[in-house]
Design a protein around this nucleic acid. Structure first.
Ligand SMILES: [Zn+2]
Ligand SMILES: [Zn+2]
Ligand SMILES: [Zn+2]
Ligand SMILES: [Zn+2]
Lengths: 158, 158
DNA sequence: GATGTTATGTTATCTCATAACAGAAGTGTT
DNA sequence: AACACTTCTGTTATGAGATAACATAACATC
C-alpha cells in the first residue's frame, strides 16, 4: 500500500450498527451449531475486524481491543485470531502479516485475495485451484491447503 | 513440518562441490550481463541457500554466515536476500518466513511452491495462473504479482 | 459439588525485520 | 591522480510479530 493513495477503497466498507450486529449474530449461530463458544475476547476481535475497511495487523487489534483505550495482552488477541481462523470467520493474509474477516458465505471454504498495493484494500474471492491441484498431483503431492495472494491495483487505483 | 518426520526428502538435495560452484558461476554470469555485482556477502548467502536441502530462515543464514562460526549482522543477510530475490536467484516463502534458492531456469519467472508439512521440503514449480488472473481481471484488478503456496504431503511422506 | 476440560490472564521471552548513519569500495570524469 | 558520484557494507539500536509457560477462571458432565 502506497503511503499517499488518495483513492477511495469502497470494496469493503467496515460494518457498523445493525449490519455489524447481524454479522456477529450469524457467527454466534454458526458457533452454536458447531458446539463452539464465541466468548467475549473472540467476539471483540471479530467485531474489530468487521468494523475495519482494511486488513488489520495483530498489534492494531491489540491496541484497539479495550473499549476505553487499554490494550489487550498479545496472547488474548492471537488466541482469538486462531479461533476465528479455525472456524472460518477470519483469514490471515501471509504477505501482509494481517487479518481480515471472512467476506464469503459458508464455512470451510477456500480463500484467496486480491490486494491493492495502492489503497491497501484486500478483496476475498473464491478461487479455482484445479490447475494447481493437478500440477501438485502430477508431482505426487497430496495438498491440504493453498495460500493465494495476488498483488496489484484495484479498479479505483488503476 | 512435523518434528518427527523420518522420511527422506530427496526432492532437493543441497548442492556441493562442482555442482555448487557451477550454480554460483551461473549466478555470476547472470549478474555480469545485468550490470549487477555478486559481492561477497551476496555470494555467501546464495551459497548457503544452495547448500541447504530445505528452506532456510533468515536467522539460520545469519548464524551460518561466518566461515568460522561468527554470525553475520542481520542487515547483512537481509540485504543479500533482497538482492537475491530481486535478481530471481532466491524466493521468500511467506507462509514459512523462509527462503529458498531458485530451482528453475531463467530469471524473471513466476514461482509457486509445494510445501511438505511432514518433512519440510519445498518444491518450486512453474505455476499457471490463467484462471486466477481471469478472476482478477473480472473484478477490475491489474495484477502485478502472485504468491501461491500449497501445503500438503510430498510423495515420500504420504 | 467433585472432576475433567476448555478458555483466559499474565509475565516473560522469542523470532523476524528494519531504521539510521558512518565508512568503504566501485565508477566515471577531469 | 584527484574528484565527485553512486552503490554497497559495517554497526548499533530498535521496531514488529508471535509464542512459551503457568496460574486462574469458567464451563460442562456426572
Ligand atoms: Zn473467507
Ligand atoms: Zn486500490
Ligand atoms: Zn524460481
Ligand atoms: Zn515430505
Amino acid at each position: 500500500m502506497s503511503a499517499d493513495c488518495h483513492h477511495e477503497d469502497g470494496s469493503h466498507p467496515g460494518l457498523a450498527g445493525e449490519t455489524l450486529r447481524r454479522a456477529i449474530g450469524l457467527a454466534e449461530t454458526r458457533c452454536m451449531t458447531s458446539q463452539e463458544r464465541l466468548t467475549a475476547p473472540r467476539r471483540r476481535v471479530l467485531e474489530l475486524l468487521l468494523e475495519s475497511d482494511a486488513p488489520m495487523k495483530a498489534y492494531d487489534l491489540i491496541a484497539a481491543f479495550g473499549q476505553s483505550g487499554e490494550p489487550a495482552k498479545p496472547p488474548t488477541v492471537y488466541r482469538a485470531l486462531e479461533f476465528l481462523e479455525r472456524l472460518g470467520f477470519a483469514h490471515r493474509i501471509e504477505s501482509l502479516n494481517a487479518y481480515v474477516p471472512c467476506r464469503l458465505d459458508g464455512a470451510g471454504h477456500k480463500a484467496a485475495f486480491l490486494i491493492c498495493e495502492c489503497c491497501g484494500a484486500a478483496e476475498e474471492f473464491e478461487p479455482d485451484f484445479s490447475t494447481q491441484l493437478a500440477a501438485a498431483a502430477a508431482r505426487g503431492y497430496a495438498v491440504s491447503g493453498v495460500t493465494l495472494e495476488a498483488r496489484g491495483l484495484c479498479p479505483a487505483c488503476r
